[in-house]
């Protein structure tokens, strides 16, 4: 499987036909975002489909990570950040005043650029989320941890050292642990912010393979600066530039026949 993904030119390998019929999971309408007086996002409008992988690409500082963080309101933690516009998940505006942000973030999991396991054991890392919900039943936790680690394809590597520190895992293992940690809270959407940018090629391949598996059950939005990666893993691709959404469509279309000149320039590596 890994070999296949690594072989590149994977565009044809994914069964993409089925996702076009999937309902819309996240709907963004005229989203503007400000850091103080600086406008970081300009009127973004896009629909993200359920159980599909949507890749956000673009040069550094183009707003793709900022946009990703508006989807689980992680930008709330930044002082001076302000939002205009509407983001709905399953038709509910997540910026409505009475939304429970903690519940939102449980539903919308996030994997960060640099793997950030807690300095706790492997088990405690994965069990962290369920425990937040007040689950203390040991058998249930063990089951949930095993399940999550299996889903993130880490179980075989760590099942004998669940109680050693997560800090002793390799970088790639740590990142998959972070994914397992997200899965353990049963999210519906998973946001990934350049999840493989700090990893070696082999670990990257494992993560990509994992994304391919997860997409059957989760809605995934992934930020990447790696064009080949976007082409390999995603169903839809959005190209951001200077805080604006330049082009958005099926990955196949974007990569083979981009509508906009800027997109083509970026994809073919003429700038960026």
């Amino acid at each position: 499987m890994i070999a296949r993904t690594l072989a590149g030119g994977a565009l044809a390998d994914l069964d993409r036909d089925d996702v076009a019929q999937n309902p819309v999971k996240i709907s963004v309408h005229d989203l503007n975002m400000y850091y103080g007086n600086v406008r970081a996002l300009h009127g973004i409008t896009m629909d993200i489909k359920e159980r599909a992988v949507t890749a956000l690409i673009g040069p550094s500082g183009c707003g793709k990570s900022t946009f990703l963080r508006t989807l689980n309101r992680m930008n709330d933690t930044i002082p001076g950040a302000r939002i205009e516009g509407i983001v709905t998940i399953d038709g509910v505006n997540i910026y409505a005043p009475d939304v429970n942000v903690a519940a939102l973030r449980r539903m919308v999991g996030m994997v960060f650029q640099k793997q950030n396991p807690f300095p706790k054991s492997v088990f405690d890392n994965v069990a962290y989320g369920p425990r937040l919900h007040g689950i203390t039943d040991r058998a249930f936790l063990e089951h949930r941890v095993e399940e999550s680690l299996k889903k993130s394809a880490l179980w075989d590597e760590v099942k004998d050292r669940l109680h050693t520190s997560a800090m002793q895992l390799s970088g790639g293992q740590q990142q998959r642990l972070c994914i397992a940690r997200v899965l353990a809270v049963n999210p519906e959407i998973i946001l990934m912010d350049e999840p493989a940018s700090a990893l070696d090629p082999l670990s990257t391949a494992k993560i990509e393979e994992l994304i391919h598996q997860l997409r059957k059950h989760y809605t995934i939005v992934i930020v990447t600066h790696n064009m080949q990666q976007a082409a390999r893993v995603s169903d839809y691709t959005a190209y951001f530039y200077m805080g604006s959404l330049v082009e958005f469509g099926e990955t196949k279309g974007i990569f083979t026949n981009p509508e906009k000149k800027e997109t083509e320039d970026y994809i073919t590596g003429r700038f960026g």
Binding site: M74, T77, L104, L132
Partner: peptide, 21 residues
């Protein structure tokens, strides 16, 4: 590290849960 706080908040922990745990 701030990344630890971000990880916890992103899992749906509240601010105090993050501080405490």
């Amino acid at each position: 590290p701030q990344s630890q706080r971000a990880a916890s908040l992103a899992l749906g922990a509240t601010k105090w849960q993050t501080i405490w745990r």
